Simulated assay, not measured.
Amino acid sequence: MKKLGIIALALFMQTAFAQTNRFVYQVTMKPDASNKNDVKTENAYLDISQEKSLFYSENRAKRDSIMQAMFQSGGARGFNRDQMENLRSNINYSIEKDKKNQKTTFKDRIGRDVYTYEEDRPLNWKISSETTKIGEYKVQKAETDFGGRKWTAWFTTDLPYQDGPYKFNGLPGLIVKVEDDKGEYSFDLMKNYKIVEIPTLNQFGNTIKVKRADFVKQQEKFKKDPMSFMAQGGGGFAQTRIGGGGGIAPPRSGGGGRGGDNGDFRKRMEERIKEEAQKNSNPIELQ
């Protein structure tokens, strides 16, 4: 009886601490404005606890796991470049929603630093009486305009959450599907399961807190002249830094070596950044 009591207590403790639910969404994107036939698909996690939720790329979670294993095994010796390349993501941002304060915080990297801002635009939903079924869930239709796109969402009250992927929330249920009217971005719930807690994402470089409008300006500066932006340490922006990220920072453009090597490196970096910018010329938020 004593053993049974210990087992029951262990099961209870395990259940009590596993208060976080992970919802896995398939994200379908057409990020290249010049090639709408180039469709990208990857998974993203929406982890929901009692206090907050966090939305981020599944590939980022896998990269973080590899980096953690690399650090524990003695640094660069355990680094597998091909494996990391295969885990590249079009979802480089993360979005945290604080339930108590009703704040949505966005984080994304520009150059060497991570920029963070609080979303300042409310989501104004128009809820329809139209219902249908998606998978096992009975869902109801809602529409909103956000970030220069018209969005249609389908939410369910079968699950006790008022949340959704990306910045979407504020409906009386969990968003099972949301897509824009041009068919360029969609988020579709695939599955869910319990995890012990929301993970802490690896953060390299400084974290700079800005207003959303300033983040957009910094993005534009970076796209126009990425190398000057990085050389000035954030494009000369008046920065409010929130500590450092620790770990291994991305390589700096002005690294050591021969002058010719630096010039070649700068050129390759600039070409790569401009190529990436073109591939992401149709962002999820158009304004």
Rank of each mutant, 00 (worst) to 15 (best):
Q219V: 07
S65N: 10
K36Q: 14
K62L: 10
N192T: 14
Y137Q: 14
T105F: 03
L286R: 15
Q239Y: 00
M70H: 03
V176W: 00
M84E: 06
W154I: 11
P165F: 05
Q287C: 09
I242F: 14
L46I: 07
M190F: 08
K167G: 09
F55M: 07
E184T: 15
M269L: 15
F17C: 09
Y45W: 08
K30H: 07
T105Y: 02
D180F: 05
T132V: 09
S73N: 15
M84K: 03
R272G: 15
P122W: 04
G173A: 11
R81S: 14
K3T: 08
W154C: 12
T28H: 04
K62F: 06
K217C: 05
E51Y: 06
G260N: 13
K211E: 09
S49M: 12
D163Y: 03
K194F: 00
R268Q: 15
G147M: 06
P251H: 09
L87A: 08
R112M: 11
E143P: 00
F71V: 13
G5P: 00
D82Q: 12
R112S: 11
I6P: 01
G245F: 06
K138I: 13
A277T: 07
D158P: 01
G246Y: 02
V114Y: 01
N92V: 05
F106A: 10
Y161F: 14
G234L: 02
G135H: 02
R121K: 10
Y161W: 12
V196T: 11
G236D: 04
I248N: 09
I95P: 01
D158T: 07
K62T: 13
V24A: 06
Q287D: 13
D120S: 15
Q219W: 00
N92W: 02
S57H: 01
I66R: 06
T240Q: 14
N21V: 11
Y93E: 04
E285N: 15
N192Y: 06
G183A: 04
